[in-house]
């Protein structure tokens, strides 16, 4: 079982490169390999359906990052559909997720993209902490209303913003029921690192652009390197798990992988404001049988601040 999980996790991260390799070798290469077996040593490759096959090492070429050759940030990764699970039972408002998100997206405004809300449904129900980020809805109301295709939905489920396209009408912010969109009201005072490299929508905040909208991007720049989004890996309590819905697997910051369908079934997962029909890609597990006291998290709770001011 554990082995299976590991395999599926590995599969998730390495699928891309293997698929690329297989494609490059192709059937001709495989046929050729059968012709002259003594030619060279063989390497093992796994096909997309999980079969291990042998291919002569001489036919295998290192493609570097070429697996995403022609990767279009507007189209997204092929054959993937990203999903996140947030375990409310584990959240104690440590805010490491927010810190890491703020730092790695060079957020310098006063409103973080990832926020941990102090929630209480009604007077007699227990309070809990609820991290929110862009829900990457499958029926995104923000994308629907954008007049210039600046915010868009990719084939891998990620909703992004093209800050070079955005005209700053803020209709998407009005349309988003989760209040996860943030506007650059002035010229962002970002560190130099935010300005390195050419602009691409798949690393939001690098740089942020005055008069345009920003939000959580699900970290495609991390996924591209086979890594987990910043918030997932930064969380000390394994609140977040991230994965691919097609593989039915999500992985948390400690590297544990779970079967998504089982996790949602066993733990009664739900999505935020399901009734609105936005179909979010972020699932929540209810704050039952909590591992941590709610009060512990109150130490970190700041009602009016989500981005630490840079020290002058």
């Amino acid at each position: 079982m554990q082995e299976d999980k590991k395999k599926s996790r590995r599969k998730f991260f390495e699928l891309g490169i293997k698929f690329g390799l297989l494609a490059s070798v192709g059937t001709v290469a495989v046929a050729k390999a059968f012709d002259d077996e003594d030619n060279s040593e063989m390497v093992e490759l796994m096909s997309t359906d999980g079969h291990i096959m042998q291919v002569p090492a001489s036919e295998v070429h290192d493609m570097g990052h070429k697996q995403h050759d022609g990767y279009d940030p507007r189209v997204g990764f092929p054959d993937k559909k990203f999903v996140m699970v947030v375990d409310l039972a584990k959240c104690k408002n440590a805010l490491k997720c927010q810190e890491s998100c703020n730092k790695n997206h060079y957020i310098t405004g006063e409103n973080a993209w990832l926020k941990v809300y102090k929630m209480q449904e009604s007077e007699k129900t227990a309070p809990y902490f609820m991290p929110t980020l862009c829900q990457h809805c499958d029926k995104p109301p923000c994308v629907k209303v954008c007049p210039v295709d600046a915010t868009f939905k990719r084939q891998d489920g990620i909703v992004l913003i093209d800050n070079e396209r955005c005209i700053g009408c803020r209709f998407c912010m009005a349309a988003c029921p989760y209040s996860t969109r943030v506007f650059n009201w002035n010229e962002p005072d970002q560190p130099e690192a935010a300005h390195s490299g050419a602009y691409t929508p798949d690393h939001t905040g690098k740089p942020s652009v005055k008069g345009t909208v920003d939000k959580c991007d699900f970290c495609p720049h991390k996924i591209d390197m086979g890594e987990l989004p910043h918030c997932v890996s930064a969380c000390p309590n394994d609140v977040y798990s991230f994965g691919d819905i097609y593989e039915d697997a999500v992985t948390n910051g400690s590297g544990q992988t779970f079967k998504l369908s089982e996790l949602l079934k066993e733990r009664s997962g739900h999505r935020l404001l399901e009734g609105l029909g936005t179909e979010p890609s972020v699932y929540y597990l209810p704050p039952t049988e909590r591992l941590v006291e709610f009060e512990e998290g109150m130490e970190n709770y700041t009602e009016f601040q989500s981005v630490k001011k840079s020290e002058e």
Binding site: V145, C146, V148, C166, I167, F171, F183
Partner: peptide
């Protein structure tokens, strides 16, 4: 006047998408 990027006003014609109520308004 309300736009964050008035310099990109022509994007409405260049990249306009009919599903947005803003385009209907224009």
């Amino acid at each position: 006047i309300d736009m964050g990027r008035p310099d990109r006003i022509y994007y409405i014609f260049l990249h306009g998408r009919l599903q947005s109520p803003i385009i209907w308004d224009v």
